[in-house]
Design a protein around this nucleic acid. Structure first.
Length: 576
DNA sequence: ACTCATGTAAACACTC
DNA sequence: GGAGTGTTTACATGAG
């Protein structure tokens, strides 16, 4: 019985998976928080009913010995209230956690943060179960007088009279999830003896007991606090039970997430490998490599990774053509927008694999023509290419550009002419195109929400920075740096890349500021060249080649003659 | 609503 | 004259 008022596991999944919440999703969450207020009222009613029911029971069964029973009832009620409070606090902690991660925003007026008398996220059924469980545990404890027996709530619940049925129903996880070995002070002490300076419940001078956050200056005081405030009692037991449920739910969510991820990857794998065993996609969410084993992660193959599994950002126009390359052949020239290209969350997946992926899969690369052109030029040994060489680079690097030549070639020419960052230079054997990095940097400040200069410099960085990788990095920067940060956690290579990128970013920032101070990459051929045609702002050759010094293009120079491969190979112009 | 970046199409001029 | 190259304009689209 999952009510929409609580943050359901599914929603938690989304939160955990997406890393980014759309405004709509945030809105939904906020609305849910508001709905929690209504839920609260229901809880209060339920609580009253429970009280009445209990009172009635007690009156009927134990008319005589009231004092003790009443005391017991009072204790139970207190425990229940504490239980509710604890649930509420836990939920708030979750919300706070989400907030800290930037996954959830809660408006100041929202009722989620201020403590409420009752839990906000519990549904009546759960509360009822908890209530029965707590009371049963309490009863058992009272009757047996044995504190230790209450440690295993599962057992005690079963042995208790009335609520045992519900407890059983409620405990399928508990039974497996560790016999509910409540964190007794004794146990805590043991654990801390093993690790004198670390305790799961102690950190940053604060007691991390759920909902506590008491300040403990040192570990000793924390232990005192732990033994005094969180001793074995109903409250602690209830809190423990709640925590158990939280963990169980999270585990459940994780399992579901994994399942979903597996399904996604399986699905994508089937399609992407359909035409040819295309290598890995470049921009799957990095979390894939984290959550899945290497063997499982292999099928990842979506170039345009949806931020959310349920709501891919890949537009409809791109959906089919992205993976099913066979469809591309029949589609022909498609006039479409790729405005999502910069919204694609791209992880720092294996560069070579990415390259291979686009080489083989007729997938539209999620990069602008300008970026690609620039990269083609920067990748060349002398940072200059003829138009035809640019064409060849496109066809060589992207299977996608082996079709619809008229369209994209026109686009390439259009971009070369349109953007000031591309400078045409007369060569002895004709004209070549170069990149003016300064202009290129000027070109895109608005698109980048983060740091505009990052992209640029990221793109110009690294010897192993293939064109794809550069574009990937740009995309990463335009989306969220943490993406490749997380990726680095799971992959040493990626980690190196990530750190290298960070270094590069730092250096590049300075570089950008100080600008043209760096030396030119030594393009000797160009020195004998006069820029015959320069758009609007004349640039002397040095300026044109200036900021490229970061780029070391050793990678592709040897096989640059591969251009001929596609040169000789007539480009398929089937769309015309 | 507006601006901007981008993609696509097309017309045109120029050169080889 | 045709192909390739380069420029320019126009329009559509999506994002901010």
């Amino acid at each position: 019985m999952m009510t929409p008022q609580v943050i359901t596991p599914q929603q938690m999944q989304q939160i955990l998976q997406q890393q980014v919440l759309s405004p709509q999703q945030l809105q939904v969450l906020l609305q849910q928080q508001q709905a929690l207020m209504l839920q609260q009222q229901q809880l209060q009613e339920f609580y009253k009913k429970q009280q009445e029911q209990l009172q009635l029971q007690l009156l009927q069964q134990h008319a005589g010995k009231q004092p003790k029973e009443q005391q017991q009832v009072a204790t139970q009620q207190l425990a229940f209230q504490q239980q509710l409070l604890q649930m509420q606090q836990l939920q708030q902690q979750h919300l706070l956690s989400l907030q800290r991660q930037g996954l959830l925003t809660i408006q100041p007026g929202q009722p989620a943060l201020p403590l409420q008398p009752l839990t906000q996220g519990m549904i009546p059924t759960e509360l009822q179960q908890l209530w029965k469980e707590v009371t049963s545990a309490h009863t058992t404890e009272e009757t047996t007088g044995n504190n230790h027996s209450s440690l295993d709530l599962t057992t005690t619940c079963v042995s208790s009279s009335a609520p045992s049925k519900t407890s059983l129903i409620m405990n399928p996880h508990a039974s497996t999830n560790g016999q509910l070995s409540v964190h007794t002070p004794k146990r805590e002490s043991l654990s801390h003896e093993e690790h004198p300076h670390s305790h799961p419940l102690y950190g940053h001078g604060v007691c991390k007991w759920p909902g506590c956050e008491a300040v403990c200056e040192d570990f000793q005081s924390f232990l005192k606090h732990l033994n005094s405030e969180h001793a074995l009692d109903d409250r602690s037991t209830a809190q423990c039970r709640v925590q158990m449920q939280v963990v169980q739910q999270l585990e459940l969510q994780l399992a579901k997430d994994k399942e979903r991820l597996q399904a996604m990857m399986t699905h994508l794998h089937v399609k992407s490998t359909e035409p040819k065993t295309a290598p890995q996609p470049l921009n799957l969410v990095s979390s894939v490599t984290l959550s899945k084993s290497a063997s499982e992660a292999s099928p990842q193959s979506l170039p345009h990774t949806p931020t959310t599994p349920t709501a891919p950002i890949t537009p409809a126009t791109q959906g089919p053509s992205v993976i099913t390359t066979t469809s591309m052949h029949t589609v022909g020239p498609i006039r479409r927008r790729y405005s999502d290209k910069y919204n694609v969350p791209i992880s720092s997946a294996d560069i070579a694999q990415n390259q291979e992926f686009y080489k083989n899969a007729e997938v539209r690369p999620p990069f602008t023509y300008a970026s690609l052109i620039r990269q083609a030029i920067l990748e060349s040994p002398e940072k200059q290419l003829t138009l035809n060489e640019i064409y060849n680079w496109f066809t060589r690097m992207f299977a996608y550009f082996r079709r619809n030549a008229a369209t994209w070639k026109n686009a390439v020419r259009h971009n070369l002419s349109l953007h000031k960052c591309f400078v045409r230079v007369e060569n002895v054997k004709g004209a070549v195109w170069t990149v003016d990095e300064v202009e290129f940097q000027k070109r895109r400040p608005q698109k980048i929400s983060g740091n505009p200069s990052l992209i640029k410099n990221m793109q110009t960085s690294h010897a192993y920075c293939t064109p794809l990788n550069a574009a990937l990095q740009a995309s990463m920067a335009e989306n969220s740096i943490p993406l490749y940060t997380t990726a680095s956690m799971g992959n040493p290579t990626l980690g190196n890349l990530a750190s290298a990128i960070r270094e590069e970013l730092n250096g590049a920032m300075e570089h950008t500021n100080s600008n043209e101070s760096d030396s030119s990459p030594g393009r000797s051929p160009l020195q004998a060249v006069h820029p015959v045609h320069v758009k609007e702002e004349p640039l002397d050759p040095e300026e044109a080649e200036g900021p490229l010094s970061l780029v070391t293009t050793a990678n592709h120079s040897p096989d640059f003659d591969h251009d001929r491969d596609y040169e000789d190979e007539p480009v398929n112009e089937d769309m015309e």
